[in-house]
């Protein structure tokens, strides 16, 4: 397997630059195509200017088993408005026309990729400027499916490490991981419980014994204060459900975005970014 080409990528450069400036990474999640393709395109393109260092785009799936209510309904909004895996790739293609620096990680579930064809998918991702993948339902036991083809194609494979990942398992989980490690700070689905800063401190320092990769912490971060508190113990933080909730809050009864949606979401993201900056 040739993954030596993963030592100098948008993701490694991003974390290296931040480390030089003694800053923490702000990773923002949006569901691709939520609430519709055009609005989603504007939302994604404004994230770097709002202070986001790394963008995670969710690939909508009908059965998002590991997600809480916020991301479930955002996936449904996107699918209802015609979002597909092909269009998620289009979204990245359009973003890359004007931004060749901000790392993009696609996050989702395996079935749409499997239908599309795993090899075809990773090659296309590499060509259009996707930097990494987080596929929730592919544990290390199934690495042959997509992880190994992704590494060969030059994509980072980012895995979730959880509070239930014990010492027996941690090496297996970190195997093949590059770019950064995504530590899930609570047991459960996305966006539901709030993580305690002291738990995170212990968990992150334990994780550092096993990896030298940057560690981003996510699940349940909703405010600039919380973002700051968590970022103080990690190399970066991930915010998803709270941003997606802000999308939802700016939809009218029929699900159409109001005129302020894009600005309001970017304002909220900017506030979180300030919290991270103060960490």
């Amino acid at each position: 397997m040739n993954d030596s080409n993963l030592s100098d990528t948008r993701i490694t450069r991003c974390f290296a630059n931040l480390a030089k400036q003694n800053r923490k990474a702000f990773v923002a999640f949006l569901t691709g195509g939520d609430p519709d393709y055009q609005t989603s395109k504007q939302l994604v393109s404004g994230l770097p200017a709002a202070g986001v260092d790394l963008i995670e785009i969710g690939m909508p799936f009908s059965d998002p088993m590991a997600d809480g209510p916020s991301i479930q309904v955002s996936s449904q909004r996107a699918l209802r408005n015609g979002m597909t895996l092909v269009k998620t790739l289009d979204l990245v293609r359009e973003f890359r026309k004007t931004d060749d620096a901000t790392p993009i990680v696609l996050m989702g579930y395996y079935n749409p990729i499997y239908r599309y064809g795993a090899h075809h998918f990773v090659q296309e991702c590499a060509e259009i400027g996707v930097d990494g993948l987080i596929i929730v339902d592919l544990p290390p036991e199934e690495d042959k499916e997509l992880c190994e083809p992704a590494l060969t194609a030059g994509l980072h494979w980012v895995r979730l490490v959880t509070p239930s990942t014990d010492d027996d398992r941690i090496d297996a989980v970190l195997h093949n991981v590059s770019g950064f490690v995504y530590y899930i700070s609570v047991l459960g689905v996305t966006g539901t419980r709030r993580a305690m800063a002291d738990h995170i401190e212990v968990a992150v320092s334990r994780l550092r014994k096993y990896t030298s990769l940057p560690i981003a912490v996510g699940f349940g971060i909703k405010t600039p204060e919380h973002a700051k508190a968590v970022a103080e113990h990690a190399d970066g933080i991930v915010v998803g459900s709270a941003i997606v909730d802000m999308v939802k809050a700016n939809l009218d009864e029929s699900g159409k975005p109001n005129a302020e949606l894009v600005d309001r979401v970017h304002d909220f993201v900017r506030d979180i970014a300030k919290g991270v900056e103060n960490a």
Binding site: M65, A66, Y110, V136, D137, L138, P139, E141, E142, R159, L160, V161, T162, S164, T165, D166, D168, R169, V173, I184, L187, G188
Partner: peptide
Amino acid sequence: ETGHFGIYGGRFVAETLMPLIL
């Protein structure tokens, strides 16, 4: 031993569940 019947079956779950399923 990895839970496959030909190409079918397997263990396609989130990492949080893996220790438990094992």
